[in-house]
Design a protein around this nucleic acid. Structure first.
Lengths: 138, 138
DNA sequence: TGTTAACCCGACTATTTTGGTAGGGATTGT
DNA sequence: ACAATCCCTACCAAAATAGTCGGGTTAACA
């Protein structure tokens, strides 16, 4: 029941790409440095995000990545699904007890609903707000 | 992000004990048979539930287990905490990015809130309701 | 009081998942 | 051409998971 490093990194990467969405493409190396993610691992994750349709890439020298969709249209659920596949809480090999199964399904749908309600744009807005608060406090 | 077999079994065990709460103690063997849980594994889980204060045991021949508290006062969160320890979604080794961290915390508290809102008594009530529906359909 | 059926405890083990790394190929700007 | 970047497959060590095992402790009961 823990968020994996992979999932966390994926969110950080998409978040970073959203912050720099205006500036055009951003290179994996830069994301890795800014968010403290091992570069070779990040590359794997970016490929998954690309296959999931969240990110576009440009190859070759001065290549890089850019979001394939607007930050407002990308949810945490999208990002997690891209890197983790199926997000269902229950292992399908488990538990055919119908009462308990239904309850788990209910917990799951609540959880997925929450993930879907949070867009990357929300995160960017929060960051801007947090930065402002820091500014006022200086 | 999957529920472990251990956690699932723990819920099933407590659920089964709630169903038989009136009848006094129930033996591990019986729980194992009814809920299809490997007996020796279930024993480990019952010990954890006992240490978590959810279950009482009686040793010796014709011993067994019984809930230590009323089903209404035991939540899914209690059960999971007893067997999994800390339920926080985020690995503490991870991610010091404050914006993303805050969002994960929000998801986490939503999730834990849901788990806390569901009591074992709720499950029992649901089962009774489901059984009734089956009855009407016969 | 001896046997037996239960719970209790610590250690062990096989398998799967996680969190990367490595090598090298493909693509493109300069 | 060459250097930088992305892409793909394969590999690997460590950790977590899902049990198993041996044997000890406790209590009912004959």
């Amino acid at each position: 029941m823990k968020i994996t490093a992979r999932a966390d990194y994926a969110v950080l990467a998409v978040f970073e790409l959203a912050l720099r969405f205006q500036n055009g493409r951003t290179q994996a190396r830069e994301i890795a440095e800014r968010q403290q993610i091992p570069l070779r691992f990040l590359e794997q994750i970016l490929i998954q995000l690309k296959r999931g349709g969240l990110v576009k890439s440009v190859r070759g020298a001065s290549g890089g990545y850019i979001l394939a969709r607007l930050p407002a249209s990308i949810t945490l659920k999208d990002v997690l699904e891209a890197v983790e596949g199926d997000l269902s809480l229950l292992d399908p090999r488990l538990n055919p007890n119908s009462t308990v199964l239904r309850v788990w399904k209910e917990v799951e749908s609540e959880f997925l609903g929450k993930l879907q309600s949070l867009s990357i744009e929300d995160l960017v807005r929060r960051k801007i707000r947090e930065d402002k608060i820091v500014f006022y406090h200086i």
